[in-house]
């Protein structure tokens, strides 16, 4: 089977979910759609189980932080249909005061750690996740380090004098 055209793919999604799914871009030929957290589980399940699409491979799951937007945190899924060799990117944006989104670990076992990593870095809470703990950082960390306001360097360092670095 050849690659599914972006238009066909988008058509299939809008047929099924109407205005809940909207295209936001197709940079370098990779269809990017935005949806919301109410239907994300259905969208992912549809993409995985539909006989013509078969996006059976969860390539990647991560998040991004835009401090200037109203919905600051975006959760980003990359799916890959191995039979048709098509990729798709799905985004869901969340507000800071309601960072809940249904887990994808019920659809793919592999989503487990990717969601833990996303929680660790951005504080996104995946409802229904079997074991949502920090994974890379120390357990007693209270902040979410990949958010833009968190500094790169350790804020508690005392040996690094600013005047050594001309600042």
């Amino acid at each position: 089977m050849g690659k599914i055209a972006n238009e066909t793919l988008l058509q299939k999604l809008t047929d099924k979910f109407g205005e809940q799914v909207a295209q936001t871009g197709a940079d370098y030929g990779l269809l990017t759609v935005e949806t919301n957290k109410e239907v994300i589980t259905d969208v992912l399940t549809f993409l995985k189980t539909d006989a013509a699409l078969q996006f059976i491979f969860l390539t990647d799951l991560t998040a991004i932080h835009y401090p200037d937007q109203e919905k600051q945190i975006g959760v980003i899924y990359h799916l890959h249909s191995l039979t048709t060799n098509t990729r798709i990117r799905i985004k869901v944006f969340l507000t800071l005061d309601d960072l809940h989104i249904p887990t994808a670990s019920t659809i793919w076992d592999g989503a487990n750690w990717m969601e833990r990593e996303t929680y660790d870095f951005f504080g996104v809470i995946f409802d229904g996740h079997p074991d949502l703990r920090r994974i890379l950082n120390v357990d007693d960390m209270t902040v979410f380090p990949m958010r833009k306001e968190f500094p790169l360097e350790d804020p508690n360092r005392i040996d690094k004098k600013d005047y050594f670095f001309g600042r």
Partner: peptide, 11 residues
């Protein structure tokens, strides 16, 4: 895991 987490993405 995370024993040599070095924050690549942040850097």
């Amino acid at each position: 895991i995370g024993y040599i987490h070095r924050a690549f993405e942040k850097i």
